[in-house]
Design a protein around this nucleic acid. Structure first.
Length: 223
DNA sequence: ACCCAGGCGTTCT
DNA sequence: AGAACGCATGGG
């Protein structure tokens, strides 16, 4: 899988270059965005983040102290607003209580410890935890999302492989380099949003070569 | 009038 | 362990 990942990374980088993810003002805003974007388009998340900002509410202390109804109304545009308000509240309280409101304090702890701690919070699953680690704490933890799995399957790079093994393969192939891991996920998401749709149009796709090779391989198998 | 979006938790088989 | 379902808004 290693050489396929390297080729994918190289080809995507040739097309997209450095995308400079995650778009946010600071580490805590990254974490908030990671929760708000769960199964939700980024456009809706931006609206919610803007409304939080306009209230000066984008910090752990303010969110931890805010009343639930107000928080719900601020994050409403991002959908699932009752759950997400609860999740943000819990995250903010945790950061406030354990790290005096400074989320970056977590980055000096071992990765496994940080991941387990994030996963223990309601509303923080594998993808959200890895997103916070990679883009807020700048730790080399690759983010495997639905896009990644769909793309890798289509390219025949993975088949039934678990998220965990895909994650590990990227981290090894990209040498645990934070900038590379961060940009790799960004390129995959960006690519899948615009080009590699559920029903693909491969004519101008930078990955069309890899894609057609995978299709040929598929035909051989089904013979 | 659909369909989908940068998931997660709960509740089943 | 893995599938099915609810959660909710806004844009194509």
């Amino acid at each position: 899988m290693r050489s396929s990942i390297l080729r994918l990374h190289y080809t995507l980088f040739e097309e997209y270059g450095d995308l400079g993810w995650w778009p946010a003002d600071g580490p805590f805003e990254v974490a908030v965005g990671a929760i708000l974007t769960q199964n939700t388009s980024w456009n809706n998340v931006e609206t919610a983040i803007e409304s939080l900002k306009s209230e000066g509410a984008l910090c752990p202390s303010r969110i931890a102290a805010m009343n639930m109804t107000e928080l719900e109304s601020l994050v409403r545009p991002s959908g699932f607003f009752r759950q997400k308000a609860r999740y943000l509240k819990q995250l903010a309280s945790h950061i406030e209580r354990e790290y005096s409101g400074d989320i970056t304090a977590m980055s000096s702890l071992p990765m496994e410890r940080v991941r387990a701690e994030l996963l223990s919070l309601r509303g923080v699953g594998p993808e959200t935890a890895d997103t916070i680690m990679l883009y807020a704490l700048r730790m080399p933890s690759f983010v495997v999302d639905a896009y990644t799995v769909r793309l890798l399957r289509r390219l025949g790079i993975c088949d039934g492989d678990s998220h965990a093994s895909i994650k590990a393969a990227f981290e090894e192939a990209l040498d645990r380099d934070i900038a590379k891991l961060a940009n790799a996920h960004a390129m995959i998401v960006d690519h899948c949003k615009s080009v590699c749709r559920p029903t693909p149009r491969c004519v101008l796709c930078p990955l069309r070569e890899m894609c057609s090779e995978a299709e040929k391989q598929e035909e051989r198998v089904s013979d």
